[in-house]
Design a protein around this nucleic acid. Structure first.
Lengths: 146, 146
DNA sequence: AAAAAAAGTTAGACTAGCCTTACATTATTA
DNA sequence: TAATAATGTAAGGCTAGTCTAACTTTTTTT
């Protein structure tokens, strides 16, 4: 069990944004991060310095940003949580993409590994064996709302 | 649709703590709040002043604290979210009480009404019609973990 | 009813995370 | 290649939420 450097929800968001940039383009730039988090450039610099101190990113002023091995693990875990939550929200609960995504964004920093593992398993099980139940639920819910 | 005064996750925690005290004893005292939120007395005073300004509590220095009508609505909603989440975590996902409660505490500030309504409906439906599915899931999950 | 204890408040300090403005570096393009 | 544009950094300021320490008010005890 490796000890995680403790970082805030905010810093997790930066890490996740970097992860997506790295995944798509090989490296991240401050500009992209600022855009995707709706934050000003100056704020990003500070965050990058934090994440570097925590050992999660390779950062030097004016250089492209990449993830360390630790950073990659941590960021994948966050992105994974996001995806699992979003899937549950959309595919099982029938929430719209946008709301589901925003909720996942906020919730992902607040649930532990066990909960996520269980949610993955649960979601998969329902999807593979109880599609009728999902349908039934959607109708039931629509009834209630109507 | 009444406009909610916007308060932070932190202030929601104070409001919820006050709600529990009020429910159990008719009124809240700063001391209880400090204890239940693991915060020092001085910090509570500031929070109470905030919540009063937002119109959620009846507060005067050295007096007992109660909820306004608005505060009661808002606090019940938070407590409800907490309960719904916790139930889902424990009864459906099979998470232990402690972890479930802590997760609910953190997640409750980050999910909207629609999501919670859907989760209530979903949880109830499964509990009333698919107890076998819950059982099956627990076994499946235990297999995976083992 | 006076003293002691408990509870609550105030003021000042600290941190994290944000912003803005001015400046520095790097990249583009004329 | 020199000027311009784009990107990035640094410094200083702001707010929310926390703490501590000193003080006030209320409650309890003797």
């Amino acid at each position: 069990m490796k000890k995680k450097h403790s970082i805030s929800a905010s810093m997790e968001d930066y890490l996740e944004a970097i992860f997506f940039a790295v995944t798509r383009r090989g490296a991240a730039q401050a500009k992209d991060i600022a855009e995707s988090l709706n934050v000003k450039a100056g704020t990003v610099t500070g965050a990058l310095q934090n994440l570097q101190k925590a050992g999660y990113i390779n950062y030097a002023p004016y250089q492209l940003i990449t993830l360390t091995e630790e950073g990659m693990k941590r960021a994948s875990s966050i992105a994974h949580k996001h995806q699992v939550l979003k899937n549950f929200f959309t595919d099982i609960l029938g929430i719209g993409q946008d709301i589901a995504d925003k909720a996942a964004c906020r919730v992902e920093h607040n649930v532990g590994d066990e909960l996520v593992d269980r949610l993955v398993c649960f979601t998969e099980m329902i999807q593979s064996e109880s599609t009728d139940l999902i349908e039934k639920f959607k109708q039931e819910y629509d009834n209630i709302v109507a």
